[in-house]
């Protein structure tokens, strides 16, 4: 579904992503893990069209989407839940969700999808007329996910959805991601919370200083001693 090839992304003179390649097959959950500053968010922003790569291609359903406008990419079926949630403060919960469907011309489809999202996140329905800024962190994360789902994406990009949440919410968010995937949405998940991300992922890639260091199935990476030592906080056996 998505194939990223030889991606290089710079910020001015700084190279944040150096020659990264990976793929996401239809129906999968793929995790990109790596420490802070590894270049994960930069990759997602480039896929979504917020950043232009220095070089490389991003094939989505066999079309190169590099250089396309962000709005066009959303219309093609890629939605992103950005790091830090970025819900629209000052807009109500329901207005936020409505904005999620901005690109949907079909009003019926938008209202059907709204029902799906409220069903998935009942707490949003309870708060529909509340200013989104007044939601708790976990609720804001749900709103950000619901907003992204409003566009009925085929591929959902999630940037650190568990960041800053209490353990109980983290578990809930991972359960929801699994359910979203089971209902047919392909997921590319970025996490520092490597353990839980790899546990729900079909495959994963380990990123460090802007390059892919390791790849394998979720289970393989979880069992890999190098991954355990660096990302899972497991002490190597002596």
């Amino acid at each position: 579904m998505l194939e990223v090839k030889d991606l290089v992304v710079n910020y001015g003179g700084i190279q944040a992503v150096k020659d990264v390649s990976f793929r996401v097959n239809t129906g999968e959950v793929v995790a990109l893990i790596g420490a802070n500053g590894a270049g994960k968010s930069t990759i997602l922003k480039t896929i979504s069209g917020l950043l232009r790569p220095r070089s490389g291609t991003i094939l989505y359903e066999d079309k190169n989407i590099v250089g396309m406008a962000a709005a066009k990419i959303v219309k093609m079926g890629i939605s992103q839940v950005p790091e830090g949630r970025h819900i629209f403060a000052g807009l109500t919960v329901s207005e936020n969700l409505q904005m999620g469907a901005f690109g949907l011309k079909d009003k019926q489809a938008a209202s059907d999808q709204l029902a799906v999202v409220y069903d998935r996140f009942p707490v949003l329905k309870e708060r529909l007329n509340q200013d989104a800024a007044t939601l708790s962190g976990g609720e804001q994360q749900m709103l950000a996910m619901g907003r992204a789902l409003m566009a009925r994406p085929k591929l959902l990009l999630l940037d650190e959805p568990s960041m800053g949440l209490s353990p109980i919410f983290i578990q809930e968010i991972f359960d929801i991601i699994t359910k979203i995937n089971e209902q047919g949405t392909t997921v590319l998940l970025i996490e520092q919370n490597a353990k839980q991300a790899l546990a729900i992922a079909n495959r994963g890639y380990v990123l460090a200083s802007g390059t892919v260091k390791l790849t394998g199935t979720g289970a393989e990476l979880l069992a890999n001693p190098a991954v355990q030592a660096t990302y899972l906080g497991v002490q190597p056996a002596t």
Binding site: G49, L50, P82, A89
Partner: peptide, 11 residues
């Protein structure tokens, strides 16, 4: 309030 997030929803 958030031009980047606006782009991410297709605005």
């Amino acid at each position: 309030v958030d031009p980047q997030a606006a782009q991410l929803v297709g605005i």
